[in-house]
Structures are given as C-alpha cells and as structure tokens.
Design a binder for these strands. Sequence first.
DNA 1: AACTCTCACAACCGCTGTACA
DNA 2: CTGTACAGCGGTTGTGAGAGT
Length: 238
Amino acid sequence: MEGYNLGVRKGAWTREEDDLLSQCIEHHGEGKWHQVPHKAGLNRCRKSCRLRWLNYLKPNIKRGEFAADEVDLIIRLHKLLGNRWSLIAGRLPGRTANDVKNYWNTRLRTDSRLKKVKDKPQETKKTIVIRPQPRSFIKSSNCLSSKEPILDHIQTVENFSTPSQTSSSTKNGNDWWETFLDDEDAFERATCYGLVLEEEEFTSFWVDDMPQSKRQCTNVSEGLGRGDFSINVDFWNH
DNA sequence: AACTCTCACAACCGCTGTACA
DNA sequence: CTGTACAGCGGTTGTGAGAGT
C-alpha cells in the first residue's frame, strides 16, 4: 500500500530528522504530507512524518502527566464517544489522540473509576445503528429562521431531557452545557441517546418536524467545550 | 549482578472516507 | 460511475526504562 515499506526508514526518530521535519513544516506549513518527505529530505514515509509532527514536534503539545480534570474529562468523553480518540483529544488542549489513546489503554482501561460505568445495565449504553438520509429545508422555514435554542426542540425527541430551557437557553444565568459534564444525571440520560461530539457548528437543521417514526434514529451532537457550544443534528434512517 | 516482568510511550499497520480525474 | 491517491483514524506492536525477584 502506497509504497509504505519501500526502503523508507522506520523506528525511532533522530534529532536530525526531527529538525529537518520541523524546518520543513515551519517553511511550507502543515498538509500535503505526501510531499513532506521529499521537501524535508527525509527517508521516511508521509505517515511517519505526519505522526511525528502531530504527536511530538508540533508546538503547544502538552507533555507529562494528565491533570485530574483532564482524566475526568477523558473518562466522561469516552463514555459518550467510545474510542474516538481524535474527538476526545480535540477537547483536551495540547493533548494528542495518541496520548489520550495510550493513556486510556495503559491506565484507565482497568481503572476502578470505570468499573461503575461497565456495571451499568446494558440498555443505558444501547447504540442505534443509523444510516444517513438526505433532507431538505426551505430558507423561510420557521425552524431555520428561528433563533430559539435547538435544545427546546431536541428535548421533544426521544424524551431527551436537558435542564429546562428558556428562550435564551440559560438558567440562573448559566448555560446548561457549562455544567453538563458535572451533572451526572444529565450525562447518563445523554449517553442513553447516543450523543456524539462533532466539531461542526450547528447551523442548519431542526428536528421537530421529523416524523415520529424517524425520531428514534435522530442523532444529537453537542459540543462540550466551555463557551463554544455547538450542536449538530444528523438525520438518519434505518 | 543478572534476569524477568511490567508499564508507558512512540511508532507502525491496515483500514476507511474523501477528493478528484 | 469508477478507479486512484491521499489524509486521517484507531488498533496493535515494538522498545526502553524501571521495578521486582
């Protein structure tokens, strides 16, 4: 595949290789990984270069022990997302997907904190197999033009229950998602319905006009980052 | 001191999704 | 529509360091 093993160097990177790769990316920028080995003068495959940069050389990478709040977030996000390490890492500034994965596999997988999650009844972790279904909306649609929070609508789906919302989506001056991860009950309920984190901002869809028969397949996504709430609704069909 | 075991981390491999001709 | 190339992801393996015997 891709000439991956055709005479390229493998194994640990040397300081010289790191310097060449760093200089190349500082000069040409990230991306076009297939060109990087040639431009950098490295006898490495593009995958190796990319991995080395993303996991080790890239500026702002945080090294060392995971803080308690980072570990807590990993556990909670893993409960939501499963092994989607890149998404989990995206919520941990300075941490890479490889770091998170390694940390999980070597320390958290057998952590007692997870046992209670494993012991939960199966139905709370049920995942619905879902398939995409194209949908269209007209611009003048009430649901698209409305500025009301999506959660008011989503709450009608599958009895999904978030803290009661006002039209400004706040309660006691706080947005509910700011405390979402701290609210074990809300978290459990959300897990039941297969919340999925995505980077996309919610901009396009409403769900309240979906046929009742399809609602059980609605997949609700919610960005958990503090202050950068976004929500993404995918429409699926069995 | 020598050997074995365990752990943490870096890196590799195989696969999937996407873009494009 | 199909094939190809590429980017990116997650699972797995390799390896070095430290602990234990």
